[in-house]
């Protein structure tokens, strides 16, 4: 199917973009940059993405529990610390450990495509999970935060530049370009969203005296 009709035909929304379409749109309106090895990084329906140089590590001893409602900005600053790892260096992710990283690639989606971040199968089989919040919405700008966890039994060396993930891109209903709060260029964790619904629920169902 011609690419123009892919964009306009609602029946084709949700279709994964083929390699040819991806290559064409990477020259037009999809940004994945730097694309070091376009020939190898762009596959049928996905683009390989790599580890960046910035990480956020947890100091678990600084926080007894992660309570989504009580977590303050100060708590976050206390239990997280940033680490920059140059390209020739590595970060060891031990079994069961969890760190935040980000994509080396800066990504900008037009407003008619969305995407999903997945581990590349070879890394997945080695036990490396790279994303839990995998959806990338239309109009996204920035480097994607990766949630890296070692589900395996042996430590994994995380090296910036490694192609650990893939970005599956598909068409979606065109939306208006959303206004941004930020354009992240490294991993971000600002806390958990305010949960107004939960607060109301708590008011209506107070603890019994």
């Amino acid at each position: 199917m011609a690419e123009d009709s892919l964009r306009s035909d609602p029946r084709q929304q949700g279709a994964v973009l083929s390699r040819d379409v991806l290559l064409k749109r990477l020259r037009e309106d999809i940004v994945v940059s730097p694309l070091l090895d376009e020939g190898k990084q762009v596959g049928e329906g996905s683009i390989d993405i790599s580890l960046g140089t910035q990480f956020i590590l947890n100091r678990s001893s600084e926080l007894s529990t992660l309570d989504p409602i009580e977590l303050t900005a100060r708590d976050i600053r206390k239990f997280q610390h940033s680490r920059v790892v140059p390209y020739h260096d590595s970060l060891t992710l031990h079994p069961g450990s969890f760190v935040l990283g980000s994509t080396l690639e800066f990504i900008k989606f037009p407003t008619d495509v969305c995407g999903f971040v997945l581990s590349r199968s070879s890394y997945g089989r080695a036990g490396l999970l790279i994303a839990t919040a995998t959806y990338v919405q239309p109009g996204w700008h920035g480097c994607l935060t990766l949630e890296l966890e070692n589900l395996g039994e042996v430590p994994i060396m995380l090296r910036p530049g490694l192609r650990v993930g893939q970005l599956v891109i598909m068409t979606s209903v065109r939306i208006e370009q959303p206004r941004l709060r930020d354009i992240p260029c490294g991993p971000t964790f600002r806390g958990l969203a305010e949960d107004e619904r939960w607060k109301k629920l708590r008011q209506n169902f107070p603890r019994a005296k």
């Binding site: 730097p34 070091l36 390209y87 080396l104 800066f106 930020d182 354009i183 992240p184 260029c185």
Partner: peptide, 20 residues
């Protein structure tokens, strides 16, 4: 602040691209 992040990112990743 965001503008500065974009510039830093461009300088860092641009250098990588040049070396690549």
């Amino acid at each position: 602040v965001t503008l500065n992040h974009l510039l830093f990112k461009a300088i860092e990743a641009g250098e990588l691209l040049r070396e690549w």
